[in-house]
Design a protein around this nucleic acid. Structure first.
Lengths: 247, 247
DNA sequence: ATGCGCAATATCCTATAGGATAGTGTCGCG
DNA sequence: CGCGACACTATCCTATAGGATATTGCGCAT
């Protein structure tokens, strides 16, 4: 699930720290601009510094954190309006292709070993279904990401899947600000895409994804203003002396 | 230059280790499948384990290394033929757009603070020029990467630039296998793209980039076979008892 | 001869301590 | 009253040591 997948086996402390910190960023417990103290986190999570360090290095590589060599890590700022538009433009190029490929491959395509577990196809409809109309926003966020990642994996192209997967790292805040009525629309569009893929209709799948992204972009645009405003004041609140610093 | 840019200031040991290890992978001193011992590297580079750990974590996030939780890091395998094709298909979507944008912005575009230093435009022609017809292959590799990254930065879209930048991580081996006559062709195509951007001709720049990628794909395809064969036997040689393990 | 189980080793993972550096607050001077 | 220099503190960076785990090699039974 993580972009940096720990294939299988034991969960090491570095993995736990990585998951925990990423979750906090997703939940907006760590607002953009907040400073992450390295041994502060170590004490707080009851880990040593080394696993924290490793987790922070990964998060920096993903673009969620910024590092200033002898000064510490800070949470990267929110997407600007221009970056937001660019992001959707890129998605609009990549994801419809992924949907088309997923449909083209058909139900009995050879399972790509490098990609997911192989049961993505069975999971497709499940992933398309959003958890609950009035459930936690975070669940919706996660479900949305999961569906798009599932389609990306089904495309059979590891490169494409990785590119798509890396894009949505910055969408968490905007997703969180989406309205409840949008959840139903999103689910319907997801189901349409899934249906086209299952029915092996490549062009329909591509078009459905394109439509979904276009509508999603409009939906998010409203949420974008709210998120920006909220984040701005949160960042302002974080500016004073170690306000939101991780204790 | 590195995808994980260390903004500015001091170079920490972790940065040095990161650069050194990445360089070794680029030079094929570390072949795919080779095992990277963590304290072996520490002794060899005369660092402690912690900075090595941090460097490895970053390289893993970039996709150059694979990690198995309690077993160590290994160099990721070379691109398969299918992945190679996919990679160029993605580049073909992203990079022409970047070239067009770079030309559209014109010479006096507001310098994007989040992006490079701002002197990319002045550097464009310099970057287009390949170092030497018969120079080291590694220099060509680096120059090629630099030119494409420069164009990506000039696009003004941070998201687009990051997406493009992340793609070329796996191209190093194939670039290294390119023939000397291809270097001249590459330079000519680069110069054409740069000229179109400088002349503020968006459509020409886009088309020039598309043409360059198409020709590049054909050129690389031949190199691909050679690289695959060589890498296969190298991986075979690395299979036996810790053959290429980092001492 | 082949497959299985056990022991030894190398390696990773984690914890703690010390040196170095950037940021902050205070004091004194112009 | 404003500004510069100094010292202090918090934090990062690096190094070393010990416990836990996977892998490897050997021996034995089938």
């Amino acid at each position: 699930m993580a972009a940096t997948s720990t294939s299988a086996g034991r969960r090491t402390l570095a993995d736990s720290a990585y998951t925990e910190l990423k979750s906090r960023i997703m939940r907006s417990e760590l607002v953009p601009g907040a400073k992450l103290s390295i041994d502060g986190l170590a004490k707080q999570l009851a880990f040593s510094q080394t696993p924290i360090r490793e987790a922070l290095a990964r998060l920096e590589s993903e673009g969620l954190l910024a590092r200033r060599p002898l000064s510490g890590y800070t949470v990267e700022p929110l997407l600007s309006a221009a970056e937001f538009a660019d992001l959707f433009e890129i998605r609009m190029m990549l994801e419809p292709l992924a949907a088309r490929r997923a449909a083209e491959r058909g139900p009995d395509a050879p399972p790509e070993p490098a990609l997911g577990n192989g049961d993505e196809r069975a999971d497709l409809l499940g992933a398309a279904r959003t958890p609950d109309p009035s459930a936690d926003k975070l669940l919706f966020t996660e479900a949305d990401r999961r569906f798009h990642n599932t389609v990306a994996d089904l495309s059979g192209s590891a490169q494409l899947a990785k590119s798509i997967r890396r894009l949505d790292a910055h969408l968490h805040l905007h997703r969180a600000y989406i309205g409840p009525e949008a959840i139903g629309e999103t689910e319907a569009e997801h189901l349409a895409i899934a249906a086209a893929i299952i029915a092996v209709k490549p062009l329909a799948a591509e078009e459905a994804m394109r439509l979904h992204l276009e509508r999603s972009r409009v939906r998010h645009r409203e949420a974008f203003a709210a998120a920006s405003a909220s984040a701005a004041q949160a960042a302002e609140a974080a500016r004073p002396r170690r306000a939101k610093a991780a204790r």
